[in-house]
Simulated assay, not measured.
Amino acid sequence: MRIPPYYRLPTWQRFLAGMVLGGAISWMVFLFMFGVLQEEQTKTIEEQKDTIENIKKDLSIWQDEYKKLNKDNQKKLLIQDIKVKILNPEEYKVELLSIHETEDTITEDLRSLLTKDLESVYKNKDLIKKTIEKQTINLNDKRYQLKVKEMYIYTSMEIYLELKIAS
Score class of each variant (00 low, 15 high):
M1Q: 07
T11R: 14
T11N: 15
R14I: 03
M19V: 07
L21P: 06
I25C: 04
S26I: 10
V29L: 05
V29N: 04
V29P: 03
F30S: 07
L31N: 12
F32H: 08
M33N: 14
V36N: 07
E39P: 12
Q41T: 12
T42E: 09
E47R: 11
D50N: 14
T51W: 15
T51H: 15
E53G: 12
K56D: 13
K57V: 13
L59K: 12
S60E: 07
I61T: 07
I61D: 05
E65A: 15
Y66W: 10
K67C: 13
K68A: 13
D72S: 12
N73I: 07
K76C: 08
L77S: 08
K83G: 11
K83W: 12
V84S: 02
I86N: 00
L87T: 03
N88G: 02
N88Q: 02
E90R: 08
E90N: 10
E95H: 12
H100A: 07
T102A: 03
D104Q: 14
D104P: 10
E108T: 14
D109Q: 08
D109K: 08
L110C: 00
R111E: 13
S112Q: 11
L114G: 05
T115A: 15
D117V: 05
E119M: 14
E119G: 15
S120G: 04
Y122F: 15
N124L: 06
D126I: 04
L127W: 11
K130P: 04
K130C: 06
I132N: 01
K134G: 11
Q135C: 09
T136Q: 04
N138I: 10
L139K: 01
N140A: 15
K142H: 12
Q145L: 07
E150D: 09
E150S: 09
M151G: 03
Y154G: 12
T155K: 02
S156Y: 07
E162N: 07
L163N: 00
A166P: 02
S167W: 03
